[in-house]
Simulated scan of single mutants.
Amino acid sequence: MRILHTMIRVGDLDRSINFYTRVLGMKLLSRNDFPGGEFTLAFVGYEDGGAEIELTYNYGVTQYEQGNAFGHIAVEVDDAAAACDRVRELGGKVTREAGPMKHGTTVIAFVEDPDGYKIEFIQKR
């Protein structure tokens, strides 16, 4: 077994695809419209064949309440500070600057996608 993808609901599919591809450097792997079900699915991810993110747009829904159960999506980066700088340069939101995690030495940072989902950058050791 292996993890295939994580699904998140988004309020503006094109805006989300832009964030994940342009800001985080992922690729748009597929996009399929399901008019009968009134939704569109787009899959984004890195070319390494690892887990993907399914962006689900339900027709007419522009905002969701995230609740308090979902935590974050984690992405490994070479340099967390440089990754934060890139996000900022491209208009993204950094919510925690790069630095050691509390009670540890792993360097992490957090950014937010356009729908408010948290993405953790974990710097390679």
Rank of each mutant, 00 (worst) to 15 (best):
L41K: 05
I8Y: 03
E54R: 03
R2E: 06
E97F: 03
Q66E: 05
I122T: 15
G50C: 02
R22P: 00
Y117P: 03
R15E: 13
H5D: 11
Q63D: 07
G116K: 08
V107I: 15
I73H: 12
Y59I: 00
V87A: 13
L90D: 06
G67D: 06
Q123G: 09
T6P: 00
A82E: 14
T56F: 02
E38A: 14
M1H: 11
A83R: 07
E54F: 01
F43S: 10
L4C: 01
P100M: 13
G37K: 11
I122G: 08
F70C: 08
L41R: 02
A74F: 01
A98T: 07
G37S: 09
V107S: 13
F39M: 12
F121T: 06
N18T: 12
H5F: 03
F70M: 08
Y46H: 04
D79K: 08
E38Q: 13
G11D: 04
Q63F: 00
Y20L: 07
A83M: 05
D85K: 14
G91L: 07
T95S: 15
G91P: 07
G49H: 02
A69S: 13
T105N: 15
D85G: 03
A74I: 01
V94H: 12
T6E: 04
V111F: 06
A81T: 02
G36D: 15
R125D: 14
F19G: 12
Q123K: 09
L4F: 00
L24S: 09
Y117A: 05
G60K: 10
L29D: 10
I3F: 15
T62G: 01
L28V: 02
Y59H: 07
P35M: 04
Q123S: 09
V107A: 13
G36V: 01
E120V: 03
M26Q: 12
G104L: 12
V87N: 11
P114Q: 08
R2T: 06
I108S: 03
D33G: 05
L4S: 12
P35D: 08
V61L: 10
S16N: 12
L41C: 03
A80F: 06
L13H: 05
K118E: 15
V23M: 10
G71P: 00
F121S: 07
N58Y: 00
T6M: 09
P114T: 07
E54P: 01
K102F: 14
G25A: 07
K124C: 04
L24M: 14
E120G: 05
N18R: 15
M26T: 02
D85I: 00
R9T: 07
E76I: 09
V75Y: 06
D113F: 07
R31G: 05
Y57L: 09
I3A: 13
H72Y: 11
R2W: 00
G91N: 05
T6W: 01
A83C: 04
L29V: 11
T21P: 08
F39S: 03
F43C: 01
A80L: 11
G11I: 02
V111Q: 06
M101S: 13
K102E: 15
G11C: 03
R15W: 00
I122M: 15
G116E: 07
V10Q: 09
C84F: 04
V75P: 02
R125K: 15
K27N: 15
R125G: 14
Q66W: 04
T56W: 01
G67N: 03
N58G: 00
D14Y: 01
F110I: 05
D14H: 10
V23H: 12
S30M: 14
D113P: 10
A98K: 09
Y64G: 02
P114M: 08
D79W: 05
R15S: 12
